[in-house]
Amino acid sequence: MNKSWRWLAVIIIIVAVLAPLIPQLIWSFTFRWYFPSLLPGVWGTQAWEYVFSKSSRVGEGLINSLNLALVTSLFSIAVGLPAARALALYEFRGKSLVEWLLMVPIIVPGIVVIMGIHILFIRYRLTGTFLGVMLIHLIPCIPYMILVMSGVFANYGTALEDTARTLGASSLQTFWYVTLPGILPGLLVATMFTFLISWSQYVTTFLIGGGRIITLPLVLFPFIGGANHAAAAAISLVFVAPALAVLIFISRSLATESSIMGGFGRL
């Protein structure tokens, strides 16, 4: 009984996860494919030729998306890590207010904020700049970094660091040799979240990037629901590849380190 349930679940997971990915894989190699054929009548590589051509701007979008996601993530770490530690390990007056302020972008719909800030960014000439787009991506990224890492810090505690310090290690040494290895799996997961949040942004990049900063979502968006499924599918696959690579890298920490995803339960 238990066993057949398991097998059913395994099959459902695999089929459901692959179901939306398989048609995209097939379509990306399609030239002619009309209803009701199960497979394309004529295969072709036109879509991939388009993706690799300069005029598709997929390459440019890929580089911009990667750069933005990496810089936004590094910035989120630099800014969010100390805050997460402070929230996890220190008690202070006004803590709940600060906690609320730092978490509020996760709960409060961002749409009004983005539309409100747009005019300010135009005035200060931040639209159409890398800096402007990165700043707007930070709004959802920093709270996620803090959310995950405060869970990790709280779980990790200070005992090991205290020991290291009593043994004569400097603050820098303590951080590098004791703290960092301890929080690293969690940090990787948190970075994956910030990376992917930035990686998936459409509305924010669209408004603030103003077409000057082309990222992959901007390249893909006009094709979804359009007639050229082959091109849409091929661009989608380019969009998926780096994200999947990131997942393979941290998959184990995601499933085994309970404190990391558990951080979301602390909201």
Partner: peptide, 26 residues
């Protein structure tokens, strides 16, 4: 610069005007 709708570009010029961007527009 790819648009979904030309109105987006019109909107942008209006926005820049409103925000005082008189030269060096995007």
């Amino acid at each position: 610069v790819p648009l979904n709708d030309t109105a987006d570009a019109v909107n942008k010029v209006l926005d820049e005007k409103a925000a005082g961007v008189e030269t060096g527009g995007s």
